[in-house]
C-alpha cells in the first residue's frame, strides 16, 4: 500500500468513526479560506497530505490532481507548458490547495470571460459519508453520463463529502496581455463593461475602483494591439500586480470589514448609496465595506436579481450566505442526505 492508499484507508476509518460517534468533520486543506462561510463546531479533517498531480496531459488540456495539491504547484507545472487554470483562482494564502479552491468554488478576475471553477471541473473522486470512494465525470470535456455530481461538489464547502481528486480543463496562456486604465464614474463603468462584453473585444478581466476602470486584454499580440486602439485609456505599467492585488484582496480598498460580496446581474445599476464599491467581473461582483444590516443588503440585491455574501468580518460569521427560500431549502437538505445520510459533513458551513 502506498502512502496515498494508506491515507485514504485511514481517512475512511475516520469517517466511519465520526459516523459512529455522531461527530461532524470539517474538511481543511491549508486553511487559507478558513475565514469563508459560517463558523463551524466540528472536528478537523486535514487533507493537505493527500497531494500530488496524478495526471497532466497538455495536449488533452486536462489535469488531474489530489485535493491536497497546492495551487502554486499546479500553476507552476502548467506554466512550464505555457498553460493555465482558466478561472484564475484566488489563493488567499501561500499553501492554498486545489481541494479548497474547488470546495469554495471561488474564481478570479478571468471568470466572466473564461468561466468559473465549476465550468472547468470535468470529474471528481469523492469520499462520501459512508466512506465509499466514488468517481463522477471524468477527464474528457464532453461527458453526459449520469448526473453532474462533480459540479455539485464545487462550492459545496465540504458539506457533501471529501474531495479526493479533481480533473480540470486547462487552457493555453495568451500570447500577450495588457491592462488599460480609464477615468470614469462607477455607473458609466458598469455600462461600458457590458457594452464591450457584447462586442468582439478580447477582454480577460475588468474592474472599477476609486474612479477608474481597469481593463485587461488577452490574446495574440496583434489582437491585443488592435483592441488597445479601440478602447483607448492609459496602459498601466504593472498590470499583473493590479489583478493579483484584486484577486488576493490585498488592495487597501478591500481591507474594510465587514466586507460584503454582492453578486449581481452584470448590467445592474451601481448602488452608490452603499458607499464606494470595488466592482469586478464585468459588473457581476461588487464589494462593499458597510455596516448596513444584512437584511437591507439582501433585499437590495434580491430586487436587482442577485444575492449577498458576508465575505469577511472581524466577528465570527454565523450567516455568510443568503438564506434559501422554501422549497429549495428542503431540497438542499434531501440532496445532502443523498450523499451523506448520517450527517458526518453537515457542519453548517454554508
Amino acid at each position: 500500500m502506498n502512502i496515498h492508499d494508506q491515507w485514504l484507508a485511514a481517512t475512511g476509518e475516520r469517517v466511519l468513526q465520526a459516523r459512529a460517534e455522531k461527530r461532524k468533520l470539517s474538511i481543511r486543506g491549508s486553511g487559507s479560506k478558513g475565514f469563508y462561510g459560517n463558523v463551524v463546531d466540528a472536528d478537523t479533517l486535514d487533507v493537505a497530505e493527500y497531494a500530488g498531480v496524478v495526471d497532466y496531459q497538455p495536449r488533452e488540456l486536462t489535469l488531474t490532481a489530489r485535493a491536497g495539491t497546492r495551487l502554486e504547484v499546479i500553476e507552476a507545472l502548467l506554466a512550464k507548458n505555457n498553460q493555465m487554470l482558466p478561472f484564475e483562482p484566488p489563493h488567499f494564502g501561500a499553501d492554498a490547495t486545489l481541494g479548497g479552491c474547488v470546495s469554495t468554488g471561488l474564481s478570479g478576475p478571468r471568470r466572466p470571460y473564461a468561466g468559473a471553477v465549476r465550468d472547468a471541473v470535468l470529474g471528481t473522486k469523492v469520499l462520501d459519508g459512508r466512506a465509499q470512494v466514488l468517481r463522477f465525470g471524468g477527464q474528457v470535456i464532453k461527458n453526459v453520463a449520469g448526473y453532474d455530481v462533480s459540479r455539485l461538489m464545487v462550492g459545496a464547502m465540504g458539506t457533501l463529502g471529501v474531495l479526493l481528486e479533481v480533473s480540470v480543463k486547462v487552457l493555453p496562456c495568451p500570447e500577450s496581455e495588457c491592462t488599460l486604465m480609464l477615468e470614469m464614474p462607477a455607473d458609466r463603468a458598469v455600462e461600458i463593461m457590458n457594452l464591450w462584453a457584447a462586442s468582439p473585444v478580447p477582454l480577460s478581466a475588468t474592474a472599477w475602483r476609486a474612479g477608474h476602470l481597469y481593463v485587461r486584454l488577452s490574446g495574440t499580440e496583434s489582437a491585443v494591439q488592435a483592441a488597445m486602439q479601440k478602447i483607448g485609456g492609459a496602459k498601466i505599467p504593472d498590470g499583473p500586480a493590479f489583478w493579483q492585488a484584486l484577486r488576493e484582496q490585498t488592495m487597501p480598498d478591500l481591507a474594510m470589514r465587514p466586507l460584503w460580496r454582492l453578486s449581481m446581474p452584470t448590467a445592474a445599476k451601481a448602488f452608490t448609496a452603499l458607499g464606494q464599491p470595488v466592482i469586478e467581473w464585468g459588473g457581476g461582483v461588487r464589494w462593499y465595506g458597510t455596516d448596513m444590516p444584512a437584511d437591507t443588503l439582501r433585499a437590495l440585491a434580491k430586487q436587482a436579481g442577485g444575492h449577498v455574501t458576508l465575505f469577511r468580518s472581524h466577528q465570527p460569521i454565523t450567516q455568510a450566505f443568503t438564506p434559501l427560500p422554501e422549497p429549495l431549502a428542503a431540497l438542499h437538505q434531501r440532496i445532502r442526505l443523498a450523499l451523506d445520510p448520517h450527517g458526518v459533513f453537515d457542519t453548517g458551513r454554508m
Binding site: A116, R151, S263, W281, G284, T309, P323, L331, H332, I335
Partner: peptide, 24 residues
C-alpha cells in the same frame, strides 16, 4: 412547486443545482 436554479448573476447561494438539472 416552482423552483429557480442558478440566477441571473454569475452564481447563486446553495449547491449548484443548475449543473445538476442540466443533463438530468
Amino acid at each position: 412547486d416552482i423552483i429557480t436554479l442558478g440566477s441571473r448573476a454569475f452564481d447563486a447561494p446553495g449547491y449548484d443545482l443548475l449543473a445538476l438539472i442540466t443533463g438530468s
